[in-house]
Design a binder for these strands. Structure first.
Length: 1082
RNA sequence: GGGCCCGUAGCUCAGCUGGUUAGAGCGCUACUCUGAUAAAGUAGAGGUCGGAAGUUCGAGUCUUCCCGGGCCCA
């Protein structure tokens, strides 16, 4: 090694920046949760959050984040904390790198979810109750709820260590947000994309509103058991024959218009004999050829035809007598429909275009009449006979009886399937014919796809998911027949039918012909906005707003415009749009926020709203099961924060692969605390304890630029190694974080900490412990301090609390240029000149050989305290042989041997004993086995072992043995204990000479004294008076190693065969005799 | 029916563009070591990398098909 001058770039801030401040010892025991609270106080006292938010205000490079609004309807759970940790971590990382950023948090507050909670609070069960309570009061209650939970979530987020501009969060319920959506909707109308349509929609009878496609798919399906009704449709032109149909929604039978078959499939006519009420009955029934097993009783197949033969047949419907059927009953016939399958039911499908989404489409294609049976509360309208005025949920039994009476009932059996339910109240949905407002997607769809492909999706399969959604989705239904939400700015003339979209508050004021004064001063919500009337530009009539409110994803989708002053402050908007990145959980957001954000951005500006989309999966409990309040396995944020600690929580999140579900709980938290956080803390505690003891200060650091820069030979190989590793770590973590591979970054840090703890510190302990303040000791302090201060900044984004504590004690006041919070510090930059790949590989080799050496020692049954003469190693590569002298010291220290010898290629560490494998050789060779046994004994065991293990045949005199026909046993060569793995071998000589034995005894005694010091409650720095009573070889050893004993145990005085009066004492029975140790603080 | 993801040790998962003998943590047992460590080390196991075929000098990794699980759409 040449003389290299050390001066790490990240410490090169100028001369004389250090102070003579001493370190304060840190206890190895720590209460992380108390620490977190004290750090929260420190941040407050020093105004750290504010200074953090504005530290890059003047920066030329920027990295704008656009926050997806969190629903302000409930307190935050640990699953929210997961997503918010990602946001905070990447924001902190970029902030340390010096990018200007946006720190605006968002709250989502309009929509049915809030209404449902307020209804629960008030005990409302229907829309009528809301209206009699007063829409204005109800809306105010919704606003208040959102306000309350916004504050609650803000407080929780602060506890999480989430640094945001909390006083400046945006609200989707704000006037600005709503009016910006008006602008968007007007643009849609101008482009001809906005229309009012009739459709059959999934409908919640309790909430009295339709649900959009997006809403159903999230949590919208449940396994439900329904009655599967089988019934007969008698055919008009084929006397005595019936179609057998099946339905799980008997309430739709009254709206039946047609029956459908698949023209490709086979259908059969059967003569079916079965018993009803002890009476035998025979009927002719048509059904799918693959569905015969649904029949009761006996059957005989009479005829088989393709479905196309059935098309056009007319039948009598089950409810032809009710008035509402008057327009349909003569039209009942069989249709062809390719979607009819053979997997369930009878192969013949009942079609009710007014009560099913697919039915509606089929009806339109075939020009069928539509019968719509239900009102908006799920109650039958008039014209449906005995069903009139009855709620849909109660009619199954009566329909059942009625069909029996009409003799068209065949049978009923339970049927379990996935059925849509209301995602907020759990009510089973029905399908209803309604008028709703839509944004047409035909023109937008290709543009949305193009924008989606331009974005960088993390994980990459997100793009495919979004594209798949865009390909399959229908038009966007944006209306909702509710109260609390965006007031759709659509005024539709009752007289001429013309509708107009108002694009802003100013425009409305100009157009208003009445009601403006009643509205002015209120937010643009119901009921106040509904006062405002305009004049129809078509016919001049006075026009009211439609009563509908908007889909909540409009609210969240507009934020890339509304939060940036798109309407009034273009330059600000231009500065921050489009976002550099956004982040949400992916399972729901492809069709929700990602979708609406892209749609609105493309519609208004023709470009993607963000460059990068970082998304993540779902949280489960630690057993992998879904978390549910009712199941009792949900974890509240506050509880987790105070029990597990926020740093631990955040590290659990950080080290996890975001693309897969996270099994979260106290078990995994505990693992992180024990395996990562405590070892990390212990290094910190170790450093401060000894630095305080020795009075070492940063002024003395070899890694600061000072007059006479120290040459590298002050630093050991070990120091240079850990400094190299530190710079490698900086490189890696930076690269991973820039590539959004947060879990790689966290795992790299974990590996580094493990190496720092279990190799660097472990092997350096003696350097700190020895009493003289020499160059080697100063080098050790310098290296370790450098590592810790660098590491502190690398972990700051992930664990803001513990990193802050470490920064305060390692840097603040020691380095004059250091900011008073780690979160105001710069992200470290790697100094490539300090990275030594060769040294890295060499040390890896040392770690591997040490592991083998420990294994060998453990087989020798000799304690590591017993010094041994030498370690013999075999390695595989030339560079490894050359590296051995470099790592010799590390190995001999770690394994307590006097020297390391390279025996690569020399053999001899192992001897092999080969025996015949009798089970296979016996039957094969019979009596010749004796010869084989003899020949094997004479042969070269090592050579046979080699052949056998490389799968080659073995020539043994006249015999040729297969590789599996010998058994190889390894023995260590005489006088050695051996361990081998993957071509590497380590052996220790097991011979203990009298000299080695004496040294071993001395070390044993030191060990006993050290333990006794602990027992006596002495601190590390206390000096003692020591007395030992012993005889024979123990006494001899102590005489030889008196100086060693005194140094190691900090003894001011030592006397052999003496008992320290009034001290602590212990007697031990050693191999060489009894020994009594007594000591007392000097 | 279409799209996406997943299948590696008892459990939870790593394994990046194909490359020596597939790893970690947890869990179990035994032993060792310890004046930083509530730790650590060593050993014992435990795997036909879901299955089959193919491409290749070489496949956990690429291709195809199949099986199983999950999510989404229809």
């Amino acid at each position: 090694m040449g003389r290299v001058f050390f001066c790490p770039a990240n410490m090169r801030k100028g001369s004389n920046v250090t102070t003579g401040k001493k370190f304060e010892a840190v206890d190895s025991k720590v209460d992380f949760i108390a620490l977190e609270h004290s750090i929260l106080g420190l941040w407050k006292d020093r105004d750290v959050v504010n200074r953090y938010l504005h530290r890059n205000d003047g920066a030329s490079k920027k990295f704008p984040f656009m926050d997806g609004p969190i629903t302000a309807n409930n307190p935050m759970g640990v699953h929210h904390a997961w997503g918010r940790s990602y946001k905070d971590i990447f924001l902190r990382f970029r902030n340390m790198q010096g990018y200007a950023q946006r720190f605006q948090n968002g709250f989502d507050g309009q929509g049915l979810w809030v209404e449902v909670e307020v209804e629960k609070e008030k005990g409302f069960k229907s829309k009528r109750e809301i209206e009699s309570y007063g829409i204005d009061r109800f809306v105010e209650d919704c606003k208040a709820r959102v306000q309350m939970f916004s504050e609650r979530i803000s407080e929780q987020s602060k506890r999480l260590g989430y640094f945001m501009d909390w006083d400046n969060s945006y609200q989707t319920m704000s006037d600005e947000n709503n009016y910006t959506i008006w602008l968007f909707l007007k643009r849609c109308a101008d482009n001809g994309w906005l229309y009012e349509g009739e459709d059959v929609m999934p409908w919640c009878p309790r909430c009295g509103t339709g649900l959009s496609q997006q809403e159903i798919v999230t949590e919208g399906y449940q396994e439900i058991v329904h009655p599967g009704f089988f019934l007969k449709f008698p055919l008009l032109e084929r006397e005595g024959e019936s179609l057998l149909v099946w339905t799980t929604t008997p309430w739709t039978l009254v709206a039946n218009v047609a029956a459908a078959v698949n023209k490709e499939n086979d259908y059969v006519l059967v003569e079916n004999t079965y018993t009803v009420n002890r009476e035998e009955r025979t009927e002719k029934i048509w059904l799918g050829a693959q569905r015969l097993h649904v029949l009761k009783g006996e059957h005989t197949v009479m005829e088989t035809v393709k479905g196309s033969e059935l098309a056009g047949w007319r039948y009598r419907g089950p409810f032809d007598e009710v008035p509402a059927q008057s327009k349909a009953k003569d039209a009942h016939r069989v249709l062809e429909w390719e979607d009819v399958g053979e997997e369930e039911g009878t192969g013949i499908v009942h079609i009710a275009p007014g009560a099913g989404a697919e039915d509606f489409r089929l009806g339109k294609e075939n020009g069928l009449p539509i019968i719509a049976p239900l009102d908006d509360s799920g109650v039958y309208m008039t014209g449906f006979g005995f069903l009139d005025g009855r709620p849909v949920s109660e009619v199954n039994d009566d329909i059942f009886d009625d069909l029996k009476r009409k003799n068209v009932f065949y049978k009923v059996e339970k049927y379990k399937h996935r059925y849509p339910i209301c995602w907020r109240c759990g009510t089973e949905l029905v399908f209803r014919l309604v008028n709703e407002w839509f944004i047409s997607m035909d023109e937008l769809r290709p543009r949305l796809m193009e924008a989606t492909r331009k974005m960088n999706w993390i994980p990459p399969f997100g793009e495919a998911r979004e594209i798949d959604w865009l390909r399959n989705m229908g038009d966007w239904m944006i209306s909702k027949k509710r109260y609390w939400g965006l007031a759709l700015p659509i005024w539709k003339c009752a007289d001429c039918g013309k509708f107009e979209v108002i694009g802003s508050d100013d425009e409305l004021k100009v157009r208003a012909i009445e009601g403006w004064d009643a509205f002015a001063g209120n937010s643009p919500h119901r009921p106040w906005i509904d006062n405002v009337k305009i004049q129809c530009s078509g016919c001049g009539s006075t026009v009211s707003r439609i009563p509908d409110v908007g889909n909540a994803w409009l609210d969240a989708g507009i934020v890339s415009f509304s939060t940036l002053g798109y309407r009034h402050d273009r330059s600000n908007w231009e500065k921050w749009y489009p976002a550099k990145w956004i982040s949400e959980s992916f399972p729901g957001q492809f069709r929700n926020w990602f979708y609406s954000l892209i749609t609105m951005s493309v519609a208004l500006e023709g470009q993607p709203p963000a460059e990068n989309v970082f998304s993540y999966a779902l949280m489960r409990d630690e057993k992998g099961e879904e978390m549910h309040k009712s199941k009792g396995n949900a974890i509240w944020f506050e509880e987790a924060a105070e029990k597990m600690g926020v740093d631990v929580m955040r590290w659990v999140y950080s080290r996890h692969n975001p693309a897969s579900n996270l099994n979260f709980g106290y078990g995994p938290g505990d693992d992180v605390r024990r395996q990562f956080l405590i070892p990390l803390w212990n290094i910190f505690s170790f450093f401060t304890t000894y630095a305080a003891l020795d009075g070492w200060t940063v002024e003395q650091s070899l890694l600061n630029q000072k007059a006479g820069t120290p040459p590298s030979d002050e630093l050991t190989e070990l120091d240079r190694w850990i400094i190299s590793e530190t710079n490698l770590l900086i490189e890696r973590v930076t690269e991973y974080m820039e590539g959004w591979r947060i879990e790689y970054a966290a795992q790299a840090i974990e590996q580094y900490v493990d190496g720092l703890s279990n190799w660097y510190v472990r092997l350096s302990r003696r350097r700190f412990w020895k009493s003289e303040n020499d160059g080697d000791k100063i080098a050790a302090y310098s290296a370790l301090h450098y590592c810790l201060t660098t590491l502190t900044r690398l972990i700051a984004p992930f664990m803001p609390f513990v990193s802050e504590q470490m920064w305060q004690q390692l840097t603040v006041g020691h380095d004059k240029n250091a900011p008073d919070s780690v979160h105001l510090a710069d992200w470290p930059e790697a100094d490539k000149s300090l990275i030594d790949e060769q040294l890295s590989r060499q040390t890896q080799l040392a770690i591997k050989l040490a592991s083998l050496g420990r294994s060998a020692r453990s087989q020798s049954r000799l304690k590591v305290r017993q010094p041994l003469a030498e370690l013999l190693v075999e390695v595989r590569h030339d560079w490894e042989r050359e590296a051995l002298p470099v790592i010799e010291r590390q190995l001999s220290d770690e394994l307590n041997v006097k020297g390391v010898r390279d025996v690569t290629g020399k053999g001899g560490l192992l001897s092999y004993e080969v025996k015949p494998e009798l089970r296979s050789l016996g039957p094969k060779y019979g009596k010749q086995l004796g010869d084989i046994r003899r020949l094997l004994g004479e042969a070269d065991g090592a050579e046979i072992a080699r052949l056998s293990e490389s799968g080659q045949q073995i020539q043994l005199g006249e015999f040729t043995l297969e590789p599996g026909e010998v058994l190889v046993e390894r023995r260590a060569a005489e006088g050695y204990a051996v361990a081998t793995d993957g071509g590497y071998t380590a052996a220790v000589s097991t011979e203990v000479t009298p000299e080695l034995r004496a040294e071993g005894i001395a070390r044993e005694i030191v060990h006993i004294v050290q333990n006794l010091r602990k027992t006596a409650g002495l601190e590390i720095s206390h000096r003692i008076n020591l007395g030992i009573e012993a005889e024979g070889e123990i006494a001899d050893a102590l005489r030889t190693y008196t100086m060693y004993l005194i140094q190691e145990t900090l003894a001011s005085s030592f006397q052999l065969n003496y008992r320290v009066a009034g001290g602590t004492e212990e007697t031990h029975d050693l191999d060489g005799g009894k020994v009594t140790v007594s000591l007392r603080r000097a």
